[in-house]
Simulated scan of single mutants.
Amino acid sequence: MTKALIPGSDASVFGAVHLGYVVVQSERLTDWQRFGSDAIGMHVDRHSPDSLRFRLDDHACRFLIQRGPAEDVTALGWQIDDDDTFDRIVARIADRGVPIVEGNPDQAALRGVERLWRFAGPKGIAQEIFTVPVTTPEPLVMQSSGWVTGEAGLGHVAIVSREPEAMRGYYETVFDSRLTDYIDENISGLKMKIRFLRVNERHHSIAIANIRGVKIDPLRTRVQHINVQSATLDDMLASFGRVTELGFRMQWSVGQHTNDRELSYYCVTPSGFELEVGWNPVVIGPELESTWEPSTHKGISIWGHTTVGETVLTKFAQFQQALHNARTSETIVPQLTGGLPR
């Protein structure tokens, strides 16, 4: 392992940070249970009448769905490898004047962690950090044979932002994220630029997209999609079939990305943001890490990923949403943007 990947080898926390869990607020818990368990193939636990959790591995919680009106992702939980690294991150946040508070025992229990600390994040998505997840020996009961987590974390989150450089600066400041690459894409005549940031060996844990030359956001939800990685190609394709058969909306058909080479499809969750189910992306291990240089890819996909069921009405709804969003400023945390231009 190169020094760049050894947590605690210097002031950097890169390599010691992993996406641990996602918190969603929704009134559609029954739909979420059917979607996550029956369609996607995750293990489900009905934690209480007002919450359910999905497992992918021995962690007690990878997705927490809590009853509430947002129909959106409300928090991202990041696992930190050790106490020293955790303390460095806390110091970065506190020293810049951003409040960081310990979550209460009920919050920790719901998320399947021993303790957690919360602080403000871009677009109003709370960022939560923890060191010790609660694990369980209880066997997984699910239609999938398995999911890829471990050192790469849960998966990744993709966000459309009107303030992409501020968001990139935020994750560089807090987690020492590294720029993996860019994608330039033309969608319906609009030029989109996507930045892919990694915090460990996963090709990217955060993707940040913006429309070049104009500050618009056509999405109602804070996130565009959450990604999970199937253990096998058969698992990924089987879940694609179940999503379709059970009547959940498919957004993008199976295809392969230009940059991380992941095969995947995108479907719409009961809360309206998308879930990408993928297989076999590039892993930036120690050898690749030591020589990696960011590059720009033209287009999101090598093949596939064609839109499914898009109509003039859905385009019009996106245009209306963009106008609505333009009336309010996007939430940033300026103390943590690292001085990068907005």
Score class of each variant (00 low, 15 high):
residue 135 T to C: 13
residue 191 K to T: 13
residue 140 L to S: 11
residue 33 Q to N: 12
residue 171 Y to C: 02
residue 256 Q to F: 05
residue 86 F to E: 09
residue 249 R to T: 08
residue 173 T to I: 05
residue 176 D to C: 00
residue 94 A to Y: 14
residue 217 D to T: 06
residue 65 I to Y: 00
residue 94 A to V: 12
residue 45 D to H: 01
residue 246 L to R: 12
residue 126 A to W: 05
residue 276 E to T: 00
residue 136 T to E: 09
residue 329 S to I: 01
residue 252 W to H: 12
residue 286 P to F: 08
residue 319 F to C: 06
residue 291 T to K: 14
residue 46 R to W: 03
residue 188 S to Y: 08
residue 41 G to T: 08
residue 328 T to R: 03
residue 14 F to V: 03
residue 143 Q to L: 13
residue 228 V to D: 03
residue 186 N to S: 09
residue 115 R to K: 08
residue 278 G to R: 07
residue 335 Q to D: 13
residue 284 I to E: 06
residue 65 I to R: 10
residue 108 A to F: 09
residue 108 A to D: 14
residue 76 L to Q: 06
residue 113 V to N: 06
residue 263 L to R: 13
residue 216 I to N: 04
residue 13 V to S: 01
residue 60 A to F: 11
residue 312 V to W: 08
residue 119 F to N: 07
residue 149 T to C: 15
residue 253 S to D: 12
residue 307 T to R: 13
residue 201 E to F: 01
residue 90 V to A: 10
residue 312 V to R: 15
residue 283 V to Q: 08
residue 329 S to N: 04
residue 106 D to Q: 15
residue 153 G to W: 04
residue 137 P to S: 15
residue 120 A to T: 02
residue 10 D to V: 03
residue 336 L to F: 01
residue 19 L to Y: 00
residue 301 S to Q: 10
residue 75 A to Q: 08
residue 144 S to W: 04
residue 229 Q to I: 15
residue 116 L to A: 07
residue 102 E to A: 12
residue 27 E to P: 09
residue 134 V to D: 09
residue 36 G to A: 08
residue 108 A to T: 09
residue 115 R to S: 07
residue 75 A to D: 06
residue 122 P to W: 06
residue 25 Q to W: 04
residue 219 L to S: 09
residue 103 G to L: 00
residue 171 Y to L: 00
residue 121 G to Y: 02
residue 57 D to L: 10
residue 277 V to E: 03
residue 3 K to A: 15
residue 252 W to F: 13
residue 15 G to H: 09
residue 284 I to S: 04
residue 147 W to M: 09
residue 293 E to T: 15
residue 322 A to H: 01
residue 314 T to I: 01
residue 88 R to S: 07
residue 65 I to A: 13
residue 23 V to M: 14
residue 124 G to F: 02
residue 146 G to K: 06
residue 91 A to H: 04
residue 101 V to R: 07
residue 246 L to M: 06
residue 52 L to V: 10
residue 74 T to H: 06
residue 6 I to D: 14
residue 105 P to I: 07
residue 163 E to A: 00
residue 309 G to A: 06
residue 244 T to W: 10
residue 335 Q to C: 10
residue 226 I to W: 02
residue 73 V to G: 01
residue 298 K to A: 11
residue 213 G to Q: 08
residue 111 R to N: 05
residue 225 H to M: 05
residue 200 N to S: 10
residue 275 L to M: 14
residue 36 G to R: 00
residue 78 W to V: 03
residue 242 R to I: 13
residue 267 C to I: 05
residue 313 L to Q: 14
residue 201 E to Q: 13
residue 69 P to A: 14
residue 70 A to H: 01
residue 121 G to Q: 03
residue 274 E to T: 02
residue 51 S to E: 11
residue 254 V to G: 03
residue 273 F to H: 12
residue 284 I to T: 10
residue 151 E to T: 14
residue 82 D to T: 15
residue 304 G to K: 06
residue 7 P to G: 07
residue 330 E to I: 00
residue 244 T to F: 12
residue 336 L to T: 05
residue 121 G to H: 05
residue 121 G to K: 00
residue 338 G to S: 02
residue 97 G to A: 10
residue 204 H to Q: 10
residue 277 V to N: 09
residue 224 Q to C: 01
residue 97 G to F: 11
residue 63 F to L: 14
residue 32 W to A: 15
residue 200 N to L: 05
residue 109 A to T: 11
residue 99 P to W: 11
residue 30 T to S: 15
residue 162 R to I: 02
residue 283 V to M: 08
residue 322 A to V: 02
residue 154 L to V: 07
